[in-house]
Write a protein that binds this DNA or RNA. Structure first.
Lengths: 330, 330
DNA sequence: GCAATTTGTGCAAACGTTTGTATCTTTGTC
DNA sequence: GACAAAGATACAAACGTTTGCACAAATTGC
């Protein structure tokens, strides 16, 4: 591996000048800069980033910590952030916590010890507050939180507009002619689900309708099945589900009962999981705009934005499961 | 940030002894080791890994390069590898190429410049050979390839037993009583798909059956739909698909034609994508055992295994779409 | 009890870069 | 032509660790 010292020797100058030349310092004469660049290219020089990081006290790496990388949402966030950061000359170090608190702590330590220049984070379910983050990162390393955020922590935050999204999804069901609309609301320990529930209620209230049924539970197919049957018994003709998996379970349970979707019953899910487009009937879903969130988080870091909260609108994807009036094909 | 020098001063010894104590060198007296450890804990010392990496010439990071992290297969491989490597005290740096050659080159450079102690790699589609890998990594950084491998490159390789898997899937269809079995074979530029086609043919041959139809095309829902209709017209009663997405398309097309699955027609897909369990009928699929591959790749790296090829068996997951005789519920 | 060995520490030089300060060279001004 | 200012480069120290070698003290063998 060739070093700047070798380049300096080859040119009869000193390593410091070579360093400055390669880093675009205005303190070196254009002609020597060119000579250095030429020689560096010739000798196949590449900066030893480890040495550089040691000297500078930080690296050009941004750490991204997510609960799981195999979730459409998180991998898309990473994709969006990576693109913006790469364009800015930064690399990305991805860590997954598998929803575990101790893994989150470990990841934060690893990142800090590698002197990353920033951390983009969505918390593990097991994390109940942000004290560990503050403790580990200190105030040296900028933090950007997204989706699952703790408001007590400093730094930028990027979140979905869950209220607006759920409002739009519910309004869509109303416009399709459904009248007794229930919801599968998710667990209320997460801010996002609370806001979705509120958006649902607000849309109904604005249309002078009453919530027909509210099921507060985890968002998995089984709870969806059960809730759907109860909703049916209670006379519901539509459901807004705060998750796609529970919506899937609901559809399966209803189909087994011979309920026609969307003619007799409308359903909208949330998250736009990849399977929603593949089902039959395909599932209308409130998409999270994950790439936008990733991009926004990366930009917030690059801009050094402190403490601001960026709210990303959600997008309603209308497919068969709620398209009673056949607005268009999807 | 506290340094070993500060610990040394606090104890009236030298940094070198502190370093040796913390690294478990046998050259330090147990009593001083304990004193150092106690003081380090008290002062909240954590090793500056950047400095350590510079001095040692390498880091405790293993790079993993995959085409995309949002594929069930790749994220599971990463998960498996991560677990094994973390237990060995190594961190993981994940890069995605989005199937692009230049991104693969960039990723390799980043990893080498960060002095990773090894690279675990599955190639981008755009990569036609492995010369760039050899050139960038040299013979200093060990390489482990998985799934998409170039045999000309040195180092360990971990692959699926595609032949065995496709053989088992086809045999299963035969055992279920299907007789005119076709296949959706995938594109033949990939070794994996070639082997699956061969496994399919071998199973038929061993049962004295003829291939009823072979569709060589990309593995997406649309080609699956089309192929299924042609297969139906040709009198097929079953299909082995080298991908789940094309199997999904096939099922949808057949259902629209009123064909009952699995009574009239059996289908087995490949990859065990998450949606296969969610469909109705649920899709039997040949699972790739991604975690096993990840674990095997990590172990191959840790063992310093050179040049060996590890073949991981595939696992047939029987669900409704091929379960004509109702062997068991799934 | 002396030499030979083992055991435990210290010393100092790396690893390759960056950067504050000093030094040297050029240019411009009167 | 002298002097100041600016422009360009050199010097040297630092970043925090690791590690070969030297050295002292403690242990062993005869």
């Amino acid at each position: 591996m060739v070093t700047i010292t070798e380049i300096a020797e080859a040119l009869g100058i000193t390593p410091s000048t070579v360093s400055r030349a390669l880093n675009g310092s205005p303190r070196v004469k254009p002609s020597t800069r060119e000579a250095v660049e030429k020689m560096a290219a010739e000798m196949g020089y590449e900066r030893n980033v480890v040495a550089s990081n040691l000297r500078r006290g930080r690296s050009d790496i941004v750490g991204i910590i997510v609960p799981r990388i195999n979730r459409e949402f998180f991998s898309s966030v990473i994709g969006g952030a990576e693109k913006v950061l790469n364009e800015a000359g930064l690399s990305v170090l991805i860590c997954q916590t598998l929803e575990r608190f101790d893994a989150e702590v470990r990841a934060l330590r690893t990142l800090r010890n590698n002197r990353v220049s920033g951390v983009i984070l969505s918390h593990a379910i097991e994390s109940r507050d942000g004290s560990h983050v503050a403790e580990i990162l200190g105030d040296q390393i900028p933090l950007v939180q997204f989706d699952r955020v703790f408001s007590e922590l400093p730094g930028a935050k990027v979140v979905n507009d869950n209220f607006q999204g759920a409002y739009a999804a519910t309004k869509h069901l109303i416009e399709q002619g459904y009248r007794r609309i229930g919801t599968l609301a998710g667990y209320m320990t997460s801010e996002a689900y609370v806001q979705r529930l509120e958006g649902y209620r607000a849309a109904l209230a604005d249309a002078s309708l009453e919530p027909a049924a509210e099921f507060v539970d985890t968002i998995i197919p089984e709870t969806g099945r059960e809730a759907a049957l109860q909703a049916l018994a209670a006379g519901c003709d539509a459901l807004y589900s705060a998750g796609d998996f529970s919506a899937l379970g609901a559809i399966q349970a209803l189909q087994e009962k011979g309920v026609r979707i969307p003619e007799d019953f409308g359903i909208v899910g949330t998250a736009n999981e990849s399977f929603t487009a593949l089902m039959s009937p395909s599932l209308s879903s409130l998409a999270l705009k994950a790439s936008d969130i990733g991009r926004a988080a990366a930009r917030a870091f690059l801009d050094g934005a402190s403490d601001g909260e960026t709210v990303i609108p959600m997008e309603l994807i209308i497919r068969q499961s709620s398209n009673k009036n056949n607005l268009w094909q999807k």
